[in-house]
């Protein structure tokens, strides 16, 4: 039998971009893994269900060590969807595929269609038609973000008129503004932006991050709790001050 190549029903293949968490380990790996464990233990479930890419561009590593590193991720339930920056000889069967062309999404690389992922959010809170050529974008959500919900907006600022519950998260490429109590997680500058800030009317956060620098609830000065607070980045350290 010859294959019919002109079958009317073709397979549709679509391209789609996802925002992945990129991990770039450094040497010695044991130390780096200890730091990863520290972050994961204080932020349970952070890597669960998230696409994670392993970037080994600047890592001096041989195939055996890479295999061991991958096993270490499996042990920690971190699912590596691909490896970036690896020489072909490093990779082999049974390993995640090589990934190329990942972009650190920056202001002038704004996607035509914003990648907005609002899980569990009612339809009405989706933003109106995006303006394709505008560089600064913002997403305004007029209701509380509930536990288990996650608002991800790499294109710009997120403003929430309401509270962010414990177990909820807001991840913005730009700044995060919470006109309510921040009890969950807020991550500003999620795709690389040292100038992003986090503002909230009442600080009770579980985790804060700006440009990949994390701060857990227990690391925060007790004087900030319950206060109106802004946070920003200075030399890779998260700074905070009360507002008003």
């Amino acid at each position: 039998m010859t294959k019919v190549l002109t079958d009317a029903r073709s397979i549709r293949i679509k391209g789609r971009s996802f925002l992945a968490v990129v991990l770039s380990p450094d040497l010695p790996l044991d130390d780096w893994l200890a730091r990863l464990d520290d972050l994961a233990s204080r932020s349970a479930g952070f890597f669960l269900g998230r696409p994670v890419v392993l970037d080994v561009t600047d890592l001096e590593i041989c195939k055996t060590d890479l295999k061991e590193l991958l096993a270490a991720f499996v042990e920690r339930n971190v699912a590596i969807m691909g490896i970036e920056g690896a020489r072909p000889s490093l990779l082999g069967p049974g390993m995640p595929p090589a990934l190329k062309g990942g972009k650190p999404v920056s202001g002038d690389a704004v996607a035509k269609e914003p990648i907005i992922e609002i899980r569990n959010m009612p339809a009405e809170t989706q933003p109106a038609e995006p303006e394709p050529r505008q560089v600064l974008q913002s997403l305004v959500i007029r209701e509380p973000i509930r536990s288990g919900q996650s608002v991800i907006f790499p294109e710009g600022d997120v403003t929430v008129i309401g509270s962010v519950a414990s177990g909820a998260e807001v991840i913005a490429g730009g700044s995060v503004h919470i006109y309510g109590t921040l009890r969950g997680r807020a991550m500003a500058g999620s795709i690389g932006n040292i100038n992003a800030r986090i503002f909230c009317r009442k600080m009770e956060a579980e985790l804060l991050a700006i440009d990949g620098v994390y701060k857990m609830a227990e690391d925060m000065a007790p004087g900030l709790r319950g206060k109106s607070v802004q946070l920003w980045l200075e030399n890779d350290t998260i700074m905070a001050e009360t507002l008003i």
């Binding site: 569990n120 009612p122 288990g148 177990g167 909820a168």
Partner: peptide, 21 residues
């Protein structure tokens, strides 16, 4: 309270009412 908050999120997304806007 946290579980209720989670449920409210589902009420606002997984119900026929929510799906009809």
């Amino acid at each position: 309270v946290r579980d209720s908050d989670r449920i409210i999120g589902l009420l606002d997304s997984k119900t026929v009412k929510a799906e009809n806007g």
